[in-house]
Design a protein around this nucleic acid. Structure first.
Lengths: 144, 144
DNA sequence: TTGCATGCAAACGTTTTGCACTGGA
DNA sequence: TCCAGTGCAAAACGTTTGCATGCAA
């Protein structure tokens, strides 16, 4: 990760970071925009996107690159994994439990230089487990 | 995965599947559209999207999910993993090597019902390794 | 003072959808 | 026949960008 020298701290940038740090959810840019707008009613969505990008580049937050239509952001920088609900897409943290260096199993089997991996667990959140029992339909299942 | 009853096979649907099965790359919808159009010049991009969706639902192909970027498709249904190049985004297959049930390490640590995981390796393809040595910049690095 | 950051709006690339027509079972 | 499938176009969606203005250092 390219760590950028400490970015200067504008009001908007500070508040975006603060709001993201407040929540344990993993909000999308739009959700962060909604949160920030309660404190800065005139903030623009473009500013939110620009700042999320800069905060991620400077290592203060993390962009989640895993599956899903829209990107999500996380201010928890410690090593951990995520579980995503297959029905409602809600993501929660899992404590870190080292899995060994998965990539070592594969280097030599490809001419790619393997540098790491992206791992995301999928399943059902408690609410959606109940809905499923009640006969709901899964949006999609584990495919990869 | 919700396996849909065998879809009826229109000319377009058959050719989309055939073209995808021809290649070892993991093309985007647009790339598949370009391939199909060589055989069906009047096909529409909407039809390609609709059919890729249906083929995936019926278990004949697989959608690769990766947020933000564009979706890619894979007709190889056997269990395997992917490596994605961090610079050029090119994806290749890795042979399957069982990693154990990663999810078993985590159930009990969450109230989610963990049903599986999505795992993708990241690194540099051979071409981009050379570019890197020549001083190029990584688009992004391993962050999760 | 100066250049990075902002608000706004338009542009962008990808994907989905509404509609009338077509063609496969 | 008749309904799923199609071509076409517009809309939807998340994200990025150009530009004139504003503000932190």
């Amino acid at each position: 990760m390219k760590i950028i020298d400490k970015p200067r701290i504008s009001r908007q940038r500070r508040i975006i970071l603060e709001e993201l740090q407040k929540v344990k959810s993993h909000p999308s840019a739009q959700e962060i925009y909604d949160m920030v707008r309660r404190r800065l009613p005139r903030v623009s969505l473009g500013t939110v996107y620009r700042n999320l990008e800069i905060l991620a580049e400077s290592g203060l937050i993390r962009k989640l690159e895993s599956s899903g239509a829209q990107r999500r952001f996380d201010s928890e920088m410690g090593k951990h994994y995520h579980v995503r609900c297959l029905r409602c897409d809600r993501i929660v943290d899992l404590p870190f439990k080292p899995l060994g260096s998965l990539e070592n199993n594969f280097s030599g089997l490809t001419d790619y230089l393997i540098m790491g991996y992206r791992l995301e667990f999928v399943g059902l959140c408690p609410e959606c487990q109940h809905q499923e029992l009640a006969g709901g339909k899964l949006k999609e299942a584990v495919k990869e």
